[in-house]
Design a protein around this nucleic acid. Sequence first.
DNA 1: GGAATTTTGTTTCCAAGTAGACAAAATAGA
DNA 2: TCTATTTTGTCTACTTGGAAACAAAATTCC
Lengths: 162, 162
Amino acid sequence: MHETAAATHDEVRLGALANSLGFLLRLAQLTNFSDFYAAFDGTGIRPGEISVLMLIGENPGIRQGVLARRLMIKRAHMAKMIAAMEADGLVEKSVPEADRRGVELRLTPKGRARVAQAQPIFARLDAVSHRGLTPREEQELKRLLRKYLEIDSQSDGREAQP
Amino acid sequence: MHETAAATHDEVRLGALANSLGFLLRLAQLTNFSDFYAAFDGTGIRPGEISVLMLIGENPGIRQGVLARRLMIKRAHMAKMIAAMEADGLVEKSVPEADRRGVELRLTPKGRARVAQAQPIFARLDAVSHRGLTPREEQELKRLLRKYLEIDSQSDGREAQP
DNA sequence: GGAATTTTGTTTCCAAGTAGACAAAATAGA
DNA sequence: TCTATTTTGTCTACTTGGAAACAAAATTCC
């Protein structure tokens, strides 16, 4: 029996979307997230939480607005995340004398322990999440994404030391 | 005056995250989305809506479960999106005789008009969203993402014709 | 043929994230 | 000084998406 135009066998024509950067990025991110959740299964660690903790660990005293801008999420949402993490004892806030509007963030020992717990899982995930790509291609993919995002891979955004 | 360890000037050290595929994909997707919203400003067209409409247009009669799987969203959410689009008169459902559990989707004339309206904006967006990349690099980025996703760029997921 | 299982879509409730208004503190401008 | 603007974080809705339970139809297994 001949097939009609209706899609069968889960085969889906993507048409113009197959060449859309946004569409490809969205699917790639969802794919990677599912790898993340598989790797961190049972730990209760989520992508948003661990990336915030890692950035605070790398940048002690960072302001939450700066963190929100770098992670491209809204300050309102960052406020909620930080409040929850503070309630969990992962992060501590301090109000700097120089500008009492702001809040400086630092990891507590428990927060540092959480990052340390995640580190090996994170490393293993990154070593296995290649999917169809060769290691060489994955490096190239990351390089292109960093260039797209205008992230300087070596300096990690650190200021030059005079 | 010498700086403390606290991050100033919005400079944020990314540390290990700068080499994390998931982190880079997330930021890239958010960046691209903001380009999308800028390009489609005023039209009321959102990424999820237009991608669903385009896929239905390319695959008349597609089942909503198949669509959900391809877009990597949950059937529950797809049901809500389709219900809203049907209420807007963009999509029509029909129950196939062969399997009365399922629902086949097709665009209405209004749905086709919406896709036609989006097409030039979409094309222009795709031509301008390069950011730091050269056109050559953007093509390579898309190729790597398709390979990561195991999407066959030429066939668009279409079955081979015997 | 008829009960168990699976598939498909839906419904309800919950979590993640955004939008916009707000208050407090800092800064700019006369 | 002292008002006006800006910056920073927060609060209250609202939107988007997922988890789990459910119903109806199809399929499997005897």
